Simulated scan of single mutants.
Amino acid sequence: MRQNPSFAMTDVGELRRLIARNPWATLVSAAPDGLVASHYAVLLDDGRDDLTIVGHVGRPDDLLHGLGERELMVIFQGPHGYVSPGWYGDAAGVPTWNFASVHLSGVPELLTTEENLQVLDRLVAHFESPRDDPRLLWERPNDAAYVERLEKGTIGFRLTPTKVVAKRKLSQNKTPEVVESVILELEGTGPYSNPALAAEMRRAHDAMAAARNS
């Protein structure tokens, strides 16, 4: 991902927030026969306060990626959407796409069976906990034999990135008046309504304004 200073994301807290809110990740590696991409839910390692992540792949994706042997890039895509030049007022402009994205790269560590079971348990709990009647990994009708068979079909990993590229392109090159116009359009009911992107823009621009005034 091409980087430019005005759009760079460097605050670890903001990167963790983006990853936590967008756990469906794309895993990319360079295999002998070409690029390989897979898609899995990935979580921040709850024992760390950095950008270390944990997850799993189903067999044989571990072999396709050379998991534990080759560099792996994990891509998290935050809110994104179309921005019309008609939202800029009576000024020259072209369409663009606003987005926030994080790329983490490194050689992952393979987890033991026990560690993988803990990650699988946490993944299920993470996504089931908002439900009124959550179905957790070890609860009936699942039994231990079923869970253990499930685990054998997966390979868990932990990735502490050695390279981080994160970008938040949210109209930072526009005037405050244009930014507010774009946010209001995204908050509206038009064909490109996108409240999540509007909220991300407002958060970023409020932080920029606070930094300028501090």
Rank of each mutant, 00 (worst) to 15 (best):
G89D: 13
V119M: 05
L18E: 01
P5Q: 08
G55D: 02
G89S: 12
Y192G: 09
A207P: 09
A198G: 15
P108T: 14
A209W: 05
R21Q: 12
D62L: 11
V102R: 02
W97I: 04
R70E: 11
G34T: 04
G190L: 06
E14C: 00
R135Q: 13
W97H: 08
S171T: 13
Q172I: 06
V74E: 12
D90K: 12
W24M: 10
E14Y: 01
V74F: 14
H80Y: 02
L18W: 00
A125D: 15
L120H: 05
E151D: 15
E200P: 00
R48C: 10
L43Y: 03
A91G: 00
N142G: 01
T162Q: 07
G47N: 10
R135P: 01
E200K: 00
L123F: 03
V28N: 11
R16S: 09
R212H: 06
G55F: 02
S193K: 13
L44K: 05
E14Q: 02
S38I: 09
A31Q: 05
L111I: 12
V12P: 08
S84K: 06
G188E: 13
P176M: 08
G153A: 11
A41D: 12
A209E: 14
L67F: 08
R122W: 07
G86N: 08
G66Q: 07
D45N: 07
R16K: 01
V94K: 10
R168T: 15
L104K: 05
H80S: 04
P5G: 05
E177F: 02
F99A: 02
F157L: 03
H39C: 15
R131I: 03
H56P: 11
D61H: 15
I19S: 01
E71R: 15
P5S: 08
V124M: 14
N98P: 09
Q77N: 14
P141H: 07
D33H: 15
D133R: 00
V119T: 12
L111Q: 10
A145C: 11
L111E: 07
D50T: 13
R212M: 05
D45M: 06
P130A: 05
F76H: 07
G55I: 08
L35T: 14
N194R: 00
G34F: 02
N194D: 15
S193L: 07
A204S: 14
F157H: 03
S29T: 14
P108A: 08
M201Y: 00
T52I: 07
T162E: 09
G153S: 13
L15K: 01
R16Q: 06
A199V: 13
E139Y: 00
D61R: 11
H205N: 03
D90G: 05
R203A: 04
Y88N: 09
A20K: 02
Y192C: 09
N98A: 09
M201E: 07
N142R: 14
N22D: 04
Q172Y: 09
D49N: 03
N213G: 08
F99K: 01
N22F: 05
Q172P: 04
I75N: 03
